[in-house]
C-alpha cells in the first residue's frame, strides 16, 4: 500500500517539521541576529529583525572588554582537561567492568548511580572541601568535579560496548604471549574507537556547558563562558549585543562539533541504550 509521490500526508509531515524546526531554531537565530546588531538597534520597539549592518564590533567587545577571551580559554582548558582525564580513567574502567565483570553488577550500579546524583547533594561538602584545601576558583576543582560526572557516563556507555566485542581476538593474542593489558590496548581500544569518540564528544560538551558547579566553585580566577553570561545580564544597562556575542562564542564551538561528528553525537546522546 506504499504510495509514491507527494501525498497529503507527506505535505503535512513536511509542513509540521518545518514549523517545529522554526520553533526550535528561532531563539538561536535571534541570538545570532542580536550578536551582529549595532548598539542603537539592541533595544528598540518594534524590535529590529534585520540589522542595518553587520556590526562585528560586538564580538571584539565581547572578547576583550567583557572577558570573553579569558572565558573561551578557561572553558577550553576545563572541558579538554576533564575530557582527557575522564577518558584515561573511564576507558580502562569500562573495559574492566565489561570484560572481567569486576565487582559484579553491584559495582557497575554504584558507579552508574553517581551519574544521577543531584549535584546539590554534594555541592556543600565539595565547596567546604575545595575551600579547605585552597582550591576554590581553580582549574583543578572544576576539572575534577566534571570528571566525577563524566566517568560514570563513559563507563556505562563503553561497558556495554566492550561486552559486545567478541573476546576471541584478545584471547588468542594472550595465548600467543601478549599481556592482557596489551590485548586491551592494541585490540579492544581500536575496535571501540567510534564509541570512545562518541563519549568523548559528550563529555566535552557537558563540561563546556556545565553551569551549577561553575557558579558554586568559581569566583574571579576561573570564569567559563556559561559562568560569565548571567553576571553580564545583571543590572539595568543590559548590553544585549555584547552578551549575545559572548553567548554565540559559547554556542558555536559546540554546534560545530555536533555537526562535524553527527553520527557520534546520536550514539553518545542515547546513552548507549540505542545502538546504530
Amino acid at each position: 500500500m506504499k504510495r509514491r509521490g507527494l501525498s497529503l500526508a507527506d505535505l503535512l509531515t513536511y509542513a509540521t517539521l518545518a514549523l517545529a524546526l522554526f520553533v526550535f531554531l528561532a531563539p538561536v537565530l535571534w541570538m545570532l541576529i542580536t550578536a551582529v546588531k549595532p548598539a542603537e538597534e539592541w533595544l528598540t520597539s518594534p524590535p529590529v529583525f534585520i540589522p542595518s549592518e553587520l556590526h562585528w564590533q560586538n564580538f571584539a567587545d565581547a572578547l576583550f572588554k567583557w572577558g570573553g577571551l579569558k572565558g573561551l580559554g578557561d572553558s577550553l582548558i576545563v572541558a579538554a582537561g576533564s575530557t582527557v582525564l575522564s577518558l584515561l580513567l573511564g576507558v580502562p574502567a569500562a573495559y574492566s567492568l565489561g570484560r572481567f565483570r569486576t565487582g559484579g553488577d553491584n559495582l557497575s550500579f554504584m558507579i552508574l548511580s553517581i551519574l544521577f546524583m543531584p549535584p546539590v547533594a554534594v555541592a556543600i561538602p565539595m565547596y567546604l572541601l575545595w575551600s579547605s584545601v585552597g582550591l576554590l576558583d581553580s582549574y583543578t576543582a572544576l576539572i575534577l568535579q566534571y570528571t566525577v560526572f563524566n566517568v560514570p557516563f563513559i563507563s556505562w556507555v563503553l561497558k556495554s560496548f566492550f561486552e559486545d566485542i567478541p573476546r576471541d581476538m584478545e584471547d588468542s593474542a594472550v595465548v600467543n604471549g601478549a599481556t592482557r593489558w596489551r590485548a586491551f590496548w592494541e585490540i579492544a581500544v581500536p575496535l571501540a574507537r567510534p564509541a570512545i569518540l562518541a563519549v568523548a564528544l559528550l563529555a566535552f560538551i557537558f563540561s563546556w556547558n556545565e553551569f551549577f558547579f561553575a557558579v558554586i566553585l568559581s569566583r574571579a580566577e576561573v570564569t567559563t563562558l556559561p559562568f560569565i553570561l548571567p553576571t553580564l545580564m545583571e543590572g539595568h544597562d543590559v548590553l544585549w549585543g555584547d552578551i549575545a556575542a559572548i553567548a554565540t562564542l559559547g554556542a558555536l564551538p559546540v554546534i560545530a562539533l555536533a555537526f562535524a561528528l553527527q553520527r557520534y553525537l546520536v550514539r553518545g546522546l542515547s546513552f548507549g541504550t540505542l545502538r546504530e
Binding site: A20, L21, F24, L25, P27, V28, W30, M31, I205, W208, N209, F211, L225, P226, F227, L229, P230, M233, I243, A244, A247, G250, A251, V254, I255, A258, L265, L269
Partner: peptide, 15 residues
C-alpha cells in the same frame, strides 16, 4: 533539532 539541547543552558536561558 538537537541544537537547543547541546548548547549551554545558560546560553539558552539568555536567548
Amino acid at each position: 533539532f538537537l541544537v537547543p539541547t547541546i548548547i549551554a543552558p545558560s546560553v539558552a536561558a539568555f536567548q
